[in-house]
Simulated scan of single mutants.
Amino acid sequence: MNYLSGAPVVFLVEGWIILGISVVLLGVKAFAFVTSLLPSTEEYEAAGKLAKIAWVLILALGLLAQVVLIGFGPIHPIQLGFTVAALVFLADVRPAIAGLRRG
């Protein structure tokens, strides 16, 4: 079968796109996990956020799930939940802690 004539090319392109999205999400989760390790426990408490150990555990499990379930695509329910958690950390918790350092 010729993969350059017809529907199989669509599936090949789709597979590369899904792989690309999965790799980007892996990078986002790895970045969130590493940056969750840097602030002290007191900084999390001063910002009024969930405890450091909770965020580190959530983000570590998300990173692990991304690696283990990479073949299932980025819309697997477990991956979606952990992606939301990583994005919440990066959009809410990290800036709140950074604001304490500046102020």
Rank of each mutant, 00 (worst) to 15 (best):
G99L: 13
S36K: 02
F89A: 06
N2L: 08
L64N: 03
A32I: 01
G81S: 01
S36V: 02
E45Q: 14
F72V: 03
A7H: 05
Y3T: 13
I21Q: 04
V93Q: 04
K52L: 07
T35P: 03
S40A: 07
P77C: 11
I78C: 04
A54K: 12
S40K: 14
I17N: 07
P74N: 08
G81D: 01
L80T: 01
V67C: 10
F33I: 01
P39T: 08
P74V: 11
Q79G: 12
Y3R: 11
Y3E: 11
R94H: 13
A91Y: 09
L61W: 06
G48T: 12
L64D: 00
F33P: 03
R102V: 15
L12I: 13
A60T: 14
K49V: 14
L38P: 01
T83H: 02
L80A: 08
G20A: 08
I18W: 00
L100T: 08
A32K: 01
M1R: 07
V28N: 05
V56F: 00
M1P: 04
D92G: 02
A54F: 10
L87W: 08
W16E: 08
L50A: 11
E42S: 14
R101F: 03
F33C: 06
V34I: 13
V13I: 15
A32H: 04
A7W: 14
F89R: 05
F33V: 00
K49F: 01
